[in-house]
Simulated assay, not measured.
Amino acid sequence: MRILQALFFPPEQPGGVSSMVPFMIDRFNKRGWEMELFSLPKRIRGKGTEEVRFSTFDWEKYAGNKVVDKYIQTFKDYVWWTRMRITKTYDLIHAHHPIAGLVMKKLFPDTPVIMTMHSSYERELMLNGKIEEGGQEQTFLTSLYRELEDQVDQITTVSNSFKNYLAEFVQEPERIGVIPNGFDEKRFRPVHHENKMPQLITVCRLVPAKGLDVLLKACAELKKKGHPFVLHIIGDGPIRTELEELAASLGIYDDTIFYGYMLHPEDFMPFFDVFVLPSRAEAFGSVFAEASLCGLAVVGTNVGGIAEQIEHGSNGLLVPVDDVPALALALEKVASDPMYRYQLARVALEKALKSYSMTTVVQQLRSMYRTYRKEAKE
C-alpha cells in the first residue's frame, strides 16, 4: 500500500506533528509498507498563481485581510509545489494541515484523503494577540473546517476535546475520528537520579498562549514560601525578552535558566524532576506525553488534550488556566515531596506507554488506512 504523508512545512523541530510523522513513516516502512513524506519548503514564497475557489464559502469577501491573503498565497504555493514535485500515484494520502488536505484532494480527487487536525490556528492567533475573537480572520479560518468536511474523505483529530471544538463548525461531527499523537518509545529513557534541589522544566515556543507568565509568577510564590528550585525553560519565541524581564522583576532570574531552542530536549529531560506548562489552550499537548515517557511528574492546565492525558492526582496535577495560586500550590506539592512526585511520574509513564506509544498509534492508523483502501476499491 503506497501512502503519502503530507505535512505543511518540513519537520524541523520536535513537538506535535514533527515528533510523530517521521518516526511513524519509519515504523510503517520497516513493516513493508510504502510511505513517503511531502512538505512545502519554507523558501517557497509567492510562486503560486492558480485561482483558489472553495465549495462551501466565498473566501474573496475576506480578501485584503493580511492573515487571509497570506493563507491564500500559501495555498497557491502548495498547489504550485505539489504539481511540480509529485509525479507518482498513491493509494491514500494522509494530510496533517488544512492546506495540505485541501490541495491534495483538489489535485488528486480520485485518491482517498484523510485529514488529521493537530491544532487550531485561529485559537493560537487569538491567544497570542495576533487577531481578535469574532473578526474576519477567525471566521475565515473556521470556515475551512466545513470545507474540509465537504472535500476530504475523513477528518480525524488528536483529542476528544478538539473534536468537540470542531463540532461547532461542521455538519456531521460524529464522523470525526480521534487518534492521539504517537511517540517512539525508544527515544525516551527515564534515568534514575537524585537532585538535591527540585529541578522544574518546561519545553515550548515562547508565546503568550503557553502561559509562561503564569509559571514565572507561581515560581515567585514558591520562592517566597521558602521552597528552593531551579526552573529550566527550553524554547525560543517572540516574548523571550519579556519573560526574562519578568523573571528579573519577580526576583527569580537567578533561579531560572533560559536555554533557547534545543533540537532534542528528550535527551535532556529525564534528568529533571517536574515538567510544568500552564498552557491557555492545547489540542493535544504532545510535550506532556513526551515528559511522561521521560519519567517526569507533570503539572498542566485543565484544558483541551492536557486534561485527557492527566488524571488529577493519579498521573499528574491539573490547575485552572491563569490561576497563579493554584499552580504555585501544585508545584509546592510535587517539589516538596519526592515520593509523591515519583508516584505521579510512575503512573504517568505507564499510561503514556499504553496510550501514546508509536506502536499503539500505528495499529490504529493501520486499521484506518486499510478501511479507506478497501472502500476505494469497491
Rank of each mutant, 00 (worst) to 15 (best):
F75H: 09
W59E: 03
G48E: 06
V67E: 15
R53I: 03
T74E: 08
Q73M: 07
I86V: 12
T82E: 05
I86Q: 06
E60F: 01
W59K: 03
D58R: 07
V79H: 03
Y78C: 10
D77V: 07
K61F: 07
F57T: 01
T82W: 06
V67W: 15
W59F: 07
W59G: 02
T49S: 15
I86E: 04
T82D: 04
G48P: 09
Y71S: 00
R53N: 05
K70E: 14
V68L: 09
I86L: 14
F54T: 01
T49G: 12
V52Y: 07
K70G: 09
D69K: 13
Q73C: 08
N65I: 15
V79I: 15
S55I: 07
T74R: 05
A63N: 10
F57M: 05
W81F: 13
E51F: 03
K66A: 14
T82M: 12
W81D: 10
V67M: 14
V52P: 06
W81Y: 14
Q73T: 13
K66P: 12
R53T: 04
A63K: 15
F54P: 00
T82F: 11
T74G: 04
A63T: 13
Y71C: 01
D58L: 03
S55Y: 01
D77A: 13
T56H: 02
D58M: 02
E51M: 07
W80A: 15
D77W: 03
G48Y: 04
V68K: 05
S55G: 08
E60I: 08
G64H: 09
T74Y: 01
K61E: 14
Y62H: 14
T82S: 14
V52W: 03
K66E: 15
D69R: 15
T56C: 05
F75P: 00
F57V: 03
K66F: 12
R85S: 10
Y78M: 13
D77L: 08
V68Q: 07
W81I: 04
K70A: 11
R53Y: 04
F57Y: 02
R85K: 11
A63M: 12
R53M: 02
T56P: 01
Y62A: 11
G48L: 10
V67N: 09
W59A: 05
Y71V: 00
V79P: 04
Y78I: 11
V52D: 01
Y78R: 09
R85N: 09
